[in-house]
Amino acid sequence: MSPQSASIARLHAVEVSGDESLVEGPLHGYHHETYVFPLLGEAGRVRPGRWKCREPRPDLLWFDRRCFASEEQLLRDLQGRIHGIPEIAEVGGISLMRFIEGRTLGSLHASGTPVPDVYHRQIIGLFRQLAAVAPASLGAARRCDREDRPDDGDTEGFLRRLVHFTEHRVYRHNLQRFEGLFHELGVGHEAFGHLRAHVSGLTRRPFCLLHADLHRENFIVDAEQRLWTIDWELAMVGDPLYDLATHLHLMRYPAGQARRLAELWHTTVEEVRPGGTNGWRHDLPLLLGYKRAQSVITDVIRHALMLGAEPDVGRHRLHSAALKLHGVLGQAVAPLGLDPVPGTDRIAAALTRWCRAHRAR
């Protein structure tokens, strides 16, 4: 790669590592272009292992509201308070994050399968540590203006901001490209009125730190079966029950294990943040409803973009995407007021039309 074509992230990685041949990447990842390398000489003796250097990818579609200005700054703030998170180091004026060696939990135990107790216990331990981080104790800079932050305990205001983001920054912001596709799938503007009515009436709960993206690919299992939590990009301050709802939605636990984890979450969080689980049995289905509605908007856009990027979409890929979207739409019938849910053939036809129009531009 010539100096003219090299990205800033790669140039920084080569500069800090001191040996271009040791730099691996870019790694697969949505939010960042990332390179991994060891440090040489004295820097390597002080900071052994591999580190990663990264830069945000340009022109990304953001599907989730962000709270903190810098993931690295937040991780520095959490050292000693949250176990099993990447270390942050400054080398040559460049911020580096330790690369966690191991395998993702998802590669070991696929979505929909049970998670062994050795990891389940550590996930509950993570919820305990998150609940113990009070909003006032966080020094990391925030992205949002002070007036755009709900008061501590205002779970209704917290969720209203999430719904507003999904409607305006994801759905409406992308209507120029996707309005026809959404219309064919039965998702119109009125769906958000249904959603706001469906999720109203939450109980107040004191806020804490949330990871807000706890899925199987964001847990790394090391050689000692320790669980590390990565990708704190979407962390926020808010309703602790939202973190549980997001986790259950993304992990796809078998039903029995999901119920057991929810009960353990209740006991654990209530111990460290009294009142943090108030009304959880009533409110958890409402928050899961929001997550299912959010998935409709994001998954329609993601699948369309993936299919549209391919020069010729085969029938198998198209059917697979249609089947997944049919399932996502089916789960969001109540929160979005969808009636009826289109069948897979209709979804596949709508995706085909969108891809043809998209490629023609």
Rank of each mutant, 00 (worst) to 15 (best):
R252Q: 15
R98S: 03
C208D: 02
L284G: 01
W232Y: 13
A212D: 09
R353N: 12
E33W: 11
D145C: 08
I297D: 00
G180A: 13
Y35R: 05
L325C: 05
R45T: 03
E270N: 13
V16E: 06
A332S: 10
L234V: 13
A357L: 12
L159Q: 03
S107Q: 13
S21D: 11
G29W: 09
W280V: 12
R260M: 12
L74N: 01
V269R: 09
E217T: 14
E179H: 15
D239E: 07
V199Y: 01
V237C: 10
H83Y: 07
E20P: 05
D145W: 09
S111Q: 11
Y242N: 10
I297K: 05
T277E: 03
T113R: 15
T104N: 02
P58K: 03
A89G: 01
N218Q: 09
P86C: 04
R260Y: 06
D299P: 00
W228F: 09
N278S: 15
H120C: 11
P206W: 04
A262K: 09
V300I: 15
V14F: 07
E224Q: 14
T203E: 13
R45V: 06
E190V: 08
G275F: 07
V300R: 07
T267K: 14
F63Y: 06
G289P: 06
L130E: 02
L241I: 04
V296L: 11
P116E: 12
H12F: 13
I82C: 04
R65M: 04
V115W: 04
P58V: 09
A245T: 07
T352G: 12
G279T: 04
V36Q: 04
E15D: 14
V163L: 02
E20C: 08
E55R: 14
R252D: 12
G18E: 01
E156H: 05
R226H: 14
D339C: 05
H12W: 12
A293F: 05
F63L: 05
A9K: 09
Y35P: 02
V91Y: 05
S295R: 09
A6P: 02
I297F: 01
R149W: 13
V46N: 02
G41P: 01
L75F: 00
T155I: 00
E42W: 07
A191I: 01
G41H: 06
V237L: 14
G93S: 02
A350V: 02
Y119E: 01
